[in-house]
Amino acid sequence: MTLPDAPLSPAATDRTFQVDLRGLVDLLSHHLYSSPRVYLRELLQNAVDALTARHGLEPSAPADAFGIRLYADGSVVRVEDDGVGLTEADVHTFLATIGRSSKRAEKIAEQRGDFIGQFGIGLLSCFLVADEIHVLSRSARTPDAPAVEWRGRGDGSYTVRTLPASARSRPGTTVTLTPRTDAGEWTRPAQVHALARHFGSLLRHPVTFDDGTGGPGAPVNPEPAPWARTYPTPGARSRTLSAYGEEVFGFTPLDTIELDLPAVGLKGIACVLPEAVPTGRRHGHRVHVKGML
């Protein structure tokens, strides 16, 4: 028996996935991020990585030559850094492609192990508290480089403009958010300052916070880690480390044990519980990677 020939199917065509950005952000908020507060951690993380790249370009610059400035007055949240900045090509490549990290590019820096995060996914966290992200950047790699403005919106659209260098007087990046009305819990000035202290108190770059009231910016990380400071007496060191352990873990340590393992890059303290550990008690750890919680 002869079977009839099967009808010819139309030629196959390649297509790209369509991304529902609002749906993706909702997915991130429920399964990847612990709460909307992580938006500030991600912005700080990006700023720190940009500063790391800037120091790679200018290794002779003092450690405190470049910094991070935060601003929140209830109507906007702004994070500004003196980092390596972005060109227009970088903006199209890294800000408009979800999941692509500028830290993977050779043109940003070769010391990839020095970076903390990935800009491509971290910036999405800002949509947890705002419907629009405004980025103004100027690259430090080219003298008199123009400024680039990028506006990303929660509906998945974005616009890019090239502006005169005078639009940003020096290299670096400024990210500005206009919070949604339901995001006040995470974007009011006192909370932004508290989150900056929580995530960035041990950062090695100078970080300041301005609440828009006209006063001087408050330092977010005024002192190095307690175990990295110089103390007048061993007793003063012991008391400070114990107080830090109590602040972090909520109990007065019986003793503190200093940890310094250069082979694995570990430095800090272990706090000894004052009583036997109850069955089922939750373990507590506080880990900073390159100064970022």
Score class of each variant (00 low, 15 high):
191 Q>H: 07
234 P>K: 05
227 W>T: 08
215 G>S: 00
220 V>S: 06
201 S>T: 12
239 R>T: 12
191 Q>E: 15
219 P>G: 13
200 G>A: 13
225 A>E: 13
203 L>Q: 06
200 G>K: 13
221 N>W: 00
195 L>A: 09
229 R>I: 01
214 G>P: 00
232 P>V: 10
193 H>W: 05
213 T>P: 02
236 A>M: 10
214 G>R: 03
194 A>D: 11
214 G>W: 00
214 G>H: 04
212 G>M: 08
229 R>D: 04
233 T>Q: 09
211 D>S: 12
229 R>W: 02
218 A>V: 15
213 T>I: 01
198 H>G: 00
208 T>R: 15
226 P>S: 12
214 G>S: 06
190 A>R: 15
223 E>G: 01
208 T>S: 15
219 P>W: 12
237 R>K: 13
218 A>Y: 01
218 A>Q: 14
202 L>I: 02
234 P>C: 05
231 Y>C: 08
199 F>L: 09
216 P>N: 07
236 A>G: 15
213 T>D: 15
218 A>P: 00
204 R>H: 14
236 A>L: 13
215 G>P: 05
213 T>A: 15
223 E>P: 01
221 N>F: 01
232 P>L: 10
221 N>L: 00
211 D>Y: 07
227 W>K: 11
195 L>I: 03
196 A>F: 07
191 Q>L: 00
232 P>I: 02
240 T>E: 15
215 G>E: 05
216 P>M: 07
205 H>M: 03
215 G>D: 00
190 A>V: 07
231 Y>T: 10
238 S>P: 00
227 W>Q: 14
202 L>P: 02
234 P>S: 06
238 S>L: 05
212 G>Q: 09
195 L>C: 03
203 L>F: 05
204 R>I: 01
205 H>E: 00
203 L>H: 09
233 T>D: 12
219 P>Y: 13
225 A>P: 05
224 P>N: 05
211 D>W: 05
212 G>S: 07
233 T>K: 10
235 G>P: 03
217 G>V: 09
225 A>M: 07
197 R>W: 02
208 T>E: 11
221 N>R: 02
191 Q>R: 14
223 E>W: 03
194 A>I: 03
228 A>F: 04
232 P>A: 15
240 T>M: 09
238 S>I: 00
231 Y>F: 10
234 P>G: 01
237 R>F: 02
235 G>C: 01
224 P>Q: 03
219 P>E: 14
204 R>G: 12
199 F>P: 07
227 W>D: 14
209 F>E: 00
240 T>R: 09
239 R>M: 08
